[in-house]
């Protein structure tokens, strides 16, 4: 072994050690810490902490907001990614950037945006009022469930389209064009040709969107004020933690552990998905 190779080996070991230590200290330790804290007062306390009225209400609100957000964003993601990859038009890059806006702005601003639209000061408040008057309903957006859903949709908006666009770009549009020239209708083309290519990316996008929707905090915090009614799980975690007693802090970690388990499942799925698609790529390459 020559000098350079020996040096390379030392560098390799040093760099791997730094990486592993960084990930252990910064990422793995917090994960273990949540689980350890949640079981600090025993299993029966854990079960009790998860079965309060507040937690079950928060659970229902979270599921509702997540289902709505995932449905809306999956539909949007399919349509937008098709639009951005199958056609050429002016302003395409601008449109792609606009769709990514929710990634780069503070979730608190997302909450503020809906307050300024539908809240007391908002320009849309009179419209909602007149709808309520005409129909005799009592629809509220801000500080109510519709606001929670809107905030969740906002922060997870680009998740599905973002997973689909690279896959569709890689696939190209030759197959769709051929099908269209042979007389296939738009939806048939999508179902028979495009969908088989994107089903895994779509599933992964949906899972990522679900995870993010379940955990959204800042935007929902601005729009939800009633514990036991419009609180989601992260807001319930916040309320328990800020209550400050040792028991309530342990309870807040117990509720957190539910979300941690979901996060771990997402990571495992991602790993399998990525590994699978890489293998497929390599097979593809060697076949040529």
């Amino acid at each position: 072994m020559n000098e350079a190779q020996k040096g390379g080996k030392v560098t390799k070991i040093v760099l791997i050690t730094i990486s592993v230590l960084f990930v252990l200290l910064m990422l793995v330790l917090p994960l273990i810490s949540v689980l350890a804290n949640s079981l600090k007062s025993g299993l029966s306390f854990y079960k009790e902490a998860l079965s309060t009225v507040y937690v079950s209400s928060a659970f229902k609100v979270t599921i509702l907001a997540t289902v709505v957000a995932v449905l809306v964003n999956t539909f949007f993601g399919l349509v937008a990614s098709w639009l951005l990859t199958k056609y050429t038009f002016k302003g395409k890059q601008v449109l792609a950037t606009l769709i990514d806006i929710p990634f780069s702005i503070s979730p608190v601003i997302a909450g503020l945006a809906f307050i300024m639209t539908f809240g007391r000061m908002g320009w849309a408040a009179p419209i909602i009022d007149s709808i309520n008057e005409a129909l005799g309903t009592d629809i509220k957006i801000v500080f109510a469930l519709p606001g929670v859903c809107l905030a969740t949709i906002f922060v997870t908006f680009p998740f599905v389209s973002r997973e689909l666009i690279p896959v569709l770009n890689a696939q190209g549009k030759d197959e769709e064009e051929a099908a269209a020239l042979m007389g296939a209708k738009g939806f048939t083309i999508f179902k028979k040709i495009t969908f088989p290519h994107i089903k895994w990316a779509l599933l992964y996008g949906i899972i990522l969107c679900t995870a993010r929707a379940l955990g959204e905090f800042g935007a929902v915090n601005a729009l939800s004020k009633t514990r036991g009614e419009t609180f989601t799980l992260p807001l319930e975690i916040d309320a328990l933690y800020l209550a400050g007693s040792a028991d309530s802090i342990t309870a807040s970690f117990a509720v957190s552990s539910l979300l941690v388990i979901i996060a771990i499942i997402v990571l495992i799925f991602r790993n399998i998905f990525e590994h699978g698609s890489k293998e497929k790529e390599e097979q593809h390459k060697s076949a040529h």
């Binding site: 379940l214 955990g215 807001l235 916040d238 970690f253 957190s256 979300l259 941690v260 997402v266």
Partner: peptide, 13 residues
């Protein structure tokens, strides 16, 4: 992990 873990959970932990 930081993408998948809810921010409030990361925060309190």
């Amino acid at each position: 992990l930081p993408f998948a873990l809810p921010t409030a959970v990361a925060g309190i932990t």
